[in-house]
């Protein structure tokens, strides 16, 4: 198989534009997912009545349905009951809805991995519950959560590949479009793979570096 460089240079700007869109939606979706996840994890950790039940239901729905279906529902079904979104915010909302539950599980198990006596020794030093959470529990929980967190970020970035289904002009959309239009299948797929690697590899490498750092930080007593 020979790659036609002329075709590649011709396609390059299209892919760049698409990659920016993918990264943009991925970024906002993931940031929102972290916020949702942290909120849900704290509520579950503190066993706040009623709210924790609602969150448990949300987590089950979010984890047991595919992102593609969630996006279809948000984008095509919700407008019928008066909730309309444009494609981009739908993408962000869908990714946040899916990612929120995955982040929540990672943060929650991080929180639960801290032995209760850590909280008790902080209390017996006269730290308030809020300060104990902030200075003692959260820093440890966050470090424990790092591997799961990194895995989730990569997972969510990969999930962005379905956005083309709601006619967002992301990398997949561009690739499919070019395959259908010009039949330059190999070049279109080659650029698709290259651009996903450009997005995902740094995150993956950065993630393993971060994991290694955390493992060597002040832990393992």
């Amino acid at each position: 198989m020979d790659l036609n460089t002329e075709v590649l240079t011709q396609y390059l700007p299209l892919y760049q534009k698409a990659a920016v869109l993918t990264v943009k939606i991925g970024y906002f979706g993931i940031v929102l997912a972290i916020v949702i996840g942290l909120f849900c994890a704290l509520i579950q950790y503190h066993k706040i009545p009623v709210l924790r039940r609602i969150i448990a239901v949300y987590i089950e729905i979010s984890r047991n349905t595919p992102l593609l279906i969630q996006l279809f529902f948000i984008y095509y079904a919700l407008p019928k009951i008066g909730i309309s979104t444009n494609a981009e915010s739908c993408g962000v909302a869908g990714l946040a809805f899916l990612g929120g539950s995955y982040m929540a599980e990672v943060f929650r198990s991080g929180l639960e991995a801290i032995p209760p006596i850590q909280k008790e020794s902080a209390y017996s030093l006269g730290l308030s519950p809020l300060k104990t959470m902030f200075h003692v529990i959260l820093p440890q929980a966050v470090s424990i959560s790092v591997p799961g967190f990194v895995a989730n970020v990569i997972f969510l970035l990969k999930e962005t590949s379905v956005f083309s289904a709601i006619s967002l002009m992301d990398l997949m959309f561009t690739a499919k479009d070019l395959i259908g239009l010009h039949y330059n299948t190999i070049e279109a797929l080659f650029l698709l793979v290259v651009f996903y690697l450009i997005i995902l590899l740094p995150v993956s490498v950065l993630g393993s570096l971060l994991e290694r750092r955390v493992r060597h930080a002040g832990f393992g007593s």
Binding site: S161, V162, K176, T185, I186, L192, Y196
Partner: peptide, 19 residues
């Protein structure tokens, strides 16, 4: 692992058939 499954699907469905 690093590739989204949809990319893999594209490679097999569009790519290998072409090559």
């Amino acid at each position: 692992r690093i590739m989204p499954q949809l990319v893999l699907l594209f490679i097999f469905f569009f790519g290998t058939t072409r090559i």
